[in-house]
Design a protein around this nucleic acid. Sequence first.
DNA 1: TCTTATTTAAGAATTATTCTCAACTAAGAA
DNA 2: TTCTTAGTTGAGAATAATTCTTAAATAAGA
Lengths: 138, 138
Amino acid sequence: MDIAYLRKILIEKGLKITPQRLIVLEAVKTLNNHPTADNVMVYIKNNHPNIAIGTIYNILDTFVEFGILRKVNTEKDIMRYDPILENHHHLYSGDSNRIEDYFDNDLDLFLKKYFTKKNIPGFEIENIKLQIKGKFKP
Amino acid sequence: MDIAYLRKILIEKGLKITPQRLIVLEAVKTLNNHPTADNVMVYIKNNHPNIAIGTIYNILDTFVEFGILRKVNTEKDIMRYDPILENHHHLYSGDSNRIEDYFDNDLDLFLKKYFTKKNIPGFEIENIKLQIKGKFKP
DNA sequence: TCTTATTTAAGAATTATTCTCAACTAAGAA
DNA sequence: TTCTTAGTTGAGAATAATTCTTAAATAAGA
């Protein structure tokens, strides 16, 4: 992955560029199934065995805070991160931890229109995600 | 809350009726903001100080397994439980842990129709929940 | 009332995550 | 370039939610 591209992401957010941040960012962008901190750790370990796990958590938190990543909602007590920022939805497997992205522009447009008309009393919507549970066919 | 009603829920699922299960069930049905195991614990403590926390986790798991409760998807590492089983959606506060239910029959019907026509390749849908993030107005 | 498979209490064990703090370093200033 | 300083990192201890273990207790059918 192009380092200049990764650096640019950090610079745009006004974050200091450190080797650790570049490494974690590259990992998260490459690992695409909504990785956990541990997934990042394992991916990185061979080439960079001396990055502390605490640092990885630290960096992931910073990235969430600065809008480089989002946390994925799950029913497990392990945090997972999502590097894709365009609006999209998630397909959850009923019997494994697999989570895939689902893009649907038509649906997004419909929802936008729907909730412009029908507003929810006492609540101001910021964004809407579908949480689609089911089975991945083999 | 009517104990006969609580007993009936357990009997219908073929679960043994124990005092602990009735107590936890009553708590979960009463606490309505998607309680954590700890919320249940605190609620119960005064009247039943001798129920072990492990037992509460145990019972909550059993209830999830038997379809009496659902786990709520969150981006936190604390499990939360939802006693309402009719189809409904969730409103998430962007800046607190508040989660409220949102019912919308029209929308459910639309989604059902929409995904009957437009199917997702390689995926069989079991259910769809909207995860609506925003601000609760004061 | 007996029997047996289940369930519970208590607390130890586990595991993801956070915290602490000294050492280090990125990046702007001189 | 070198200096300065706020911000970052490494290492490991601390925390907190959850799970596990085991002996004792109990629900429910015989």
